[in-house]
Design a protein around this nucleic acid. Structure first.
Length: 355
DNA sequence: AATACAGACAACCGCCACTAA
DNA sequence: ATTAGTGGCGGTTGTCTGTAT
């Protein structure tokens, strides 16, 4: 035999709380505390479910709640914590005094998430957009489907997108090692569970197993000869029968890519194309060819660690030449954030095209 | 001025781990 | 040992408000 039901749901009020109800709830809790939410509404004389009372109190009426806009420092903290903890809003809220999990969750979904997307960053993984990465996986999907076959896709997909995707694809195999290393570190430090960690790493190369329903599988592209000018069109195309095996072009020897495939001003990137404001390696001097076998020194890990490592922030974040305060304007803050997480690839193409 | 649309956020829903009975 | 309620959490929805047309 279990406990009695928490409340009889019939006849209980739902929807927005009135000031009178708030007053009753505050009064009651100030006098009696909030030990038992089941009996609280009845004792207080509220026609509400105990759960509703608890939510109203913890998310809105609690005296220690800080109302108003999030400061830039708070926003920065949320991003860092989210990169470590994922959508564990209560855990994030525990590190932001005066803020509730609900408030942080709302702020993330309405502000931060969109901001990261605008910057070309996947708000779930805190790495460059998953759709771009997945496209890179498509391109890298098998030994038979190497980079040279992109030429056959030129009229199907935005060439710039292909270039970006290939750029990212070159990092995939390296990421596997980094993932394993980070996983071990996470286990050692007990930062987060493996499943959480996986959510923060770029996908391993798993062709034909999309990580996200929105993302086409590798055997897609049914609408040949239809230029796809941006990623949204690509994603919404009816693409089911494309078979890379049917590509007619020969492979380039030694997996070396003709430099003419890249923009004239292209320079191989360090740090996976992230232009971290601190610690990025200088570009290699030889830019005549580009190795597509993942031998370049790009590193998403640097991004992840820069965003997630408590030691890297806020000190280093604040080391930027632009000093922001709580009074900084929204534009200043956004500009500052954009610089923090700027892609080098933005130098060679406009990522916003794909957002 | 009216309408449509988007953004913001409060509140609800459903699930899960814990635990009282 | 089992059952079922409680509290907590994350995801989603509903409503209000501001802005654009």
């Amino acid at each position: 035999m279990g406990r009695a039901p928490c409340c009889d749901k019939s006849g209980l009020k739902k929807g927005p709380w009135t000031p009178e109800e708030d007053h009753i709830l505050i009064d009651y809790i100030q006098k009696n505390g909030y030990g038992n939410w089941r009996t609280l509404p009845k004792n207080a004389g509220l026609q509400r479910c105990g759960k509703s009372c608890r939510l109203r109190w913890t998310n809105y009426l609690r005296p220690d709640i800080k109302r108003g806009r999030f400061s830039f420092e708070e926003e920065e903290t949320i991003i860092q914590l989210h990169s470590m903890l994922g959508n564990r809003w209560s855990a994030i809220a525990a590190r932001l005094p005066g803020r509730t999990d609900n408030e942080i969750k709302n702020y993330w979904n309405t502000h931060i998430r969109k901001k990261l997307l605008r910057m070309g960053i996947d708000p779930v993984t805190h790495t460059p957009r998953l759709d771009l990465l997945h496209l890179s996986a498509i391109l890298n999907s098998s030994s038979q489907m190497n980079f040279s076959r992109l030429v056959g896709m030129h009229n199907l997909v935005n060439p710039q997108l292909l270039r970006l995707a290939n750029l990212l694809s070159s990092t995939q195999f390296q990421n596997q090692n980094q993932y394993l290393m980070l996983q071990n570190n996470a286990q050692d430090n007990q930062i987060c569970s493996n499943s959480q960690l996986q959510n923060h790493m770029p996908p391993l190369v798993q062709p034909c197993q999309p990580q996200n329903q929105d993302i086409p599988t590798c055997t897609t592209l049914e609408t040949p000869n239809v230029p796809i000018s941006n990623i949204d069109q690509f994603r919404t195309s009816d693409v089911t029968n494309f078979n890379p095996q049917n590509c007619q072009l020969n492979d380039w020897p030694n997996n070396q890519i003709d430099v003419t495939f890249f923009p004239e001003d292209y320079v191989p990137l360090s740090n996976y194309g992230y232009d971290c404001v601190y610690g990025s390696d200088p570009p290699p001097s030889d830019t005549s060819t580009f190795q597509s076998n993942g031998s370049s020194n790009f590193s998403f890990r640097s991004v992840l660690s820069n965003m997630s490592s408590p030691s890297s922030s806020p000190t280093q974040l604040h080391s930027n030449s632009i000093k922001l305060t709580s009074n900084s304007t929204e534009e200043e803050k956004e500009s500052y954030c954009s610089n923090l997480l700027k892609f080098n690839i933005q130098d060679m193409l406009d990522v916003n095209e794909f957002v």
